[in-house]
Amino acid sequence: MGRLGLCLVLILLVAAVFGPWLAPFDPFLIDVSAKFHPPSFPHLLGTDNLGRDILSRLIAGSWIAMGVGMSTVLVALVLGLILGLIAGYGPLWLDYLLMLVLDAIYAVPTVVMGLTVVTLLGPSLTTLMIVVIVILVPGYARLARTATLSMKSEEFIVALESLGASRARIILVHLLPNIAGPILIVASMDIPTVIALEAGLTYLGMGVPPPTPSWGRILQEGFAQIGDAPWIILAGGLP
């Protein structure tokens, strides 16, 4: 199972990095004469309503999917770790305040949150990433805070306090490397969730605006032609 997963991840990575060379067609090339081709040679996964090659669009979309997935998780992870460490090791009032705010965010459903932010900032890739980050941060912060709290009374932290180490030094040099491990694992498992989230939000019209080939967009556009050209939505659901 592990190896199968690794293979799939590798395929995705290769597709994302070498996309421009791998794609058989230009993903933006509109060729009305070739519209609604069912899967066949040379359009392996068929074409859409504008005659664009779906395989090429999928490959190009993987770049966005991976990019958005990894970078948002990374930013959310850093923010979550910092907030969690401060909440866990800082003064008690700050802990209460941070947890209040983060729990409030946590309580808002994903879609409602997405709609709110999109309404405020307008749909774009940046908006999408901000939405995902805001959704992810409270979870990471909670994890980091719990780990920090349980480590706070460990003897090596007390020993550092007895040496006169500053709070910042204890947090950055001694606590961070000890709590980062498990949270890093959780975060890496969140990348696929985020990709699905991106597709989902785009599908609902909150994400990447056309004509950028994102997986969610392919699905959304395919949905309109589900009766005439079912392969579009089938292929779009492949990844």
Partner: peptide, 17 residues
């Protein structure tokens, strides 16, 4: 704290792992 220091009870646990 420059002039006073402490040795802790659990030698391994008092060292940052």
């Amino acid at each position: 704290l420059h002039q006073v220091s402490m040795m802790f009870q659990d030698p391994v646990a008092s060292l940052s792992p």
